[in-house]
């Protein structure tokens, strides 16, 4: 099986996108999930609904809004442009932002559940054993939420691999920069090049299968994911 170099590039962009957006999403979701798991604030339900919004909205709707927001005349894009960094529409950065937003509920929810379970008592115990707040997070919350973190990573990663509509809106279809595998497949089908579409699709299927198999295997040993 010989892949065209454009297809290899698309796969590379996909991988890069999935890794980058998962990494930053986990980092940013931690405080949010922590807050949601602890708070008794009334605004909690509204925030939870907002976080879950990407689950129900058509990807194209979010993509459209993002395009407007990140484009040269959008609030964020305009700001970047004024700072001399250029707007974000049709760029890899824009793509990462879009994917992050799109996968938000898949990361926040498992983390929130994990944090809620590790909650109160264990942290109090650690405090009586002289652990400072940061120490408590690292030595107790983190290891006990291991499963939540893994679930969040896998879901976010897999979800980004498969995203299409939003990426098309916000990233366009620029080979080497914003063309990802799912869009390359669409192009091949449009051009009636079924062989190339088959090859690329098979790779995505295999990659996803391997990923999930690894997760379920780990799950059997450590109970990491509760899907």
């Amino acid at each position: 099986m010989m892949l065209a170099s454009a297809d290899l590039t698309a796969l590379w962009v996909t991988l890069k996108l999935a890794v980058t957006s998962t990494f930053f999403l986990i980092l940013l979701s931690m405080p949010l999930a922590w807050w949601l798991a602890r708070t008794r604030s009334r605004s909690k339900v509204l925030i939870e609904a907002l976080v879950a919004l990407p689950l129900v909205l058509p990807p194209t709707v979010m993509g459209f809004y993002l395009l407007v927001l990140l484009g040269p005349r959008g609030a964020l894009g305009g700001l970047f442009e004024a700072l001399g960094a250029g707007h974000l529409a049709f760029t890899f950065t824009g793509l990462v932002l879009g994917s992050m937003l799109f996968s938000l509920p898949f990361v926040v929810q498992p983390l929130q559940n994990a944090f809620a379970m590790t909650g109160g008592r264990m942290l109090e115990v650690a405090a009586t054993l002289r652990a400072s707040p940061v120490d408590r997070f690292i030595s107790v919350v983190f290891p006990l939420s291991r499963s939540g973190f893994l679930t969040a990573c896998v879901l976010s990663f897999a979800h980004t691999l498969g995203e299409f509509g939003m990426i098309l809106m916000i990233g366009g279809n620029i080979p080497g920069r914003t063309q990802v595998a799912s869009i390359a497949i669409y192009d091949h089908v449009e051009a009636m090049d079924y062989t190339a579409a088959h090859q690329l699709s098979l790779i995505l299927v295999m990659a996803s299968l391997v990923l999930l198999t690894v997760v379920f295997a780990l799950n059997r040993r450590f109970k990491v994911v509760s899907l």
Partner: peptide, 14 residues
């Protein structure tokens, strides 16, 4: 709590 020199035994062993 973590700066008080005390030990605490909870109702369930935790």
């Amino acid at each position: 709590t973590h700066q008080r020199s005390l030990g605490y035994v909870f109702q369930e062993a935790s």
